[in-house]
Computed example of a mutant assay.
Amino acid sequence: MPVYKDKNIKKKEKWYFEVELGLDENGKRKRYRERGFRTKKEAEEAMIKAKRNFMEGTYTDTKNLTYQELFNQWINTKKDISEATKELYLTYFRIHLNPGIGSYKLNKLSPFIIQRFINTLYDKNLSSSSVKRIYSVVRSSLQYAVRMQLLSTNFADSIEKPKENTMKEVKVWSTSEVKQFISSIEGASRYAIAYKLAVYTGMRQGEILGLRWKDINFEKSYLTVQQKLTHKGKIESGAKNKGSMRNISLNKYIIEELLKHKEIIELEKVDNQNHYQDNNLVVCTEIGTPCHPRNLLRLLYSHIEQSGVSRIKFHDLRHTHASLLLLADVNIKIISERLGHASIRITLDTYAHLLPNMQKEAIKKLDTLFGE
């Protein structure tokens, strides 16, 4: 009989089963044993299920399942995340998770091992936000294992959870630097419109590169963010989050710049009509294809060097837009909506260090209110 009673009578879980599952690659008999059953009936039912799964080709030796195998199964179930997010998770796995805990069998994992792994991420000087995201991947994948009854508990829930440093330091240009940079790129690059959109709308790079002419309402002076270009140069409908799908009002200057740029695009369509690919994109190559994000970044650094302003990243143009709005005393809720943040809290956490005078201004207004 393949169901046995454990000889150690001190154990509360007294039954186990052992079955043969054919031959391995060396011609030896392959046996599978599973312990921990309180009754003989439970052991028999589990044995029958294991045999059936093996016959149907769906058998998984959960006893020897590694975290690497679990991650691969879990990531394939994530249909609700964007391609960019999936690529980020795979990068985390390749660089950090697989070398750290990939070879561990699930039944050998523990809170101690997970905590030790998280500690190594800090040793690598990763940012607090990166550590928190990697922890979230570990937790989510182990939660999947719990749902699939591969684990009885999620070990990631028992450790000291990483905390993201909410006081994010962001680099921004001053008003004079913005004027200096904008002046220097006039007529210097066909992609100048991309940098102007970043400064004057606060759009993300992918949103700018995915912007279409049909997304702009010139009559009512606003644009709608409806799609983006991924870092791999692929157009993807939708946005980063629900709040990212938004309308952004445009000032007179950027409207005029967009109309000038549209004239250039129309001329290029005529000049390259035999091989022009009309994707209706605002920012595109001379033949209408999407502009690769890396090319846009390389050109930005070149323009920065030529203009003499401080070196910042493309994403910092978005931060610069937010800082200009704060200087203009625009309501933080409006700023959050323009940036497409999921909540005002994110906006406040990101730009808190740019608001050192908010309390002083509040007190002044309070004094004015009471006539003091």
Rank of each mutant, 00 (worst) to 15 (best):
S323E: 05
K333S: 12
V330K: 00
M358I: 14
R345Y: 08
A342N: 12
N331R: 04
I332M: 14
N357Y: 07
G340P: 11
R318E: 01
Y351M: 13
D349G: 08
V330C: 09
S336R: 11
L354G: 08
T350F: 02
L327E: 15
D329Y: 07
A352Y: 07
L355K: 07
N331V: 06
A328C: 11
A322M: 04
L317M: 15
P356D: 09
I346C: 04
A322H: 07
T350G: 05
L339T: 02
I332V: 15
N331K: 09
D316P: 07
L326E: 06
R318Q: 00
A352I: 15
H315C: 07
T347F: 02
G340Q: 06
D329A: 09
E337C: 01
S343P: 08
L355Y: 11
I346K: 03
V330F: 08
A352M: 10
P356T: 08
G340K: 03
M358N: 10
A322N: 10
L339E: 02
I332F: 04
G340S: 07
H353Y: 08
N357A: 12
I334D: 14
I332C: 06
I335V: 15
L327D: 13
G340N: 08
L324C: 11
L355C: 13
L327Q: 15
H321I: 05
T320D: 04
H341E: 03
Y351F: 13
I332D: 01
I346L: 13
E337F: 00
A328E: 15
L327C: 08
L339V: 06
S323M: 02
D349H: 09
S343I: 00
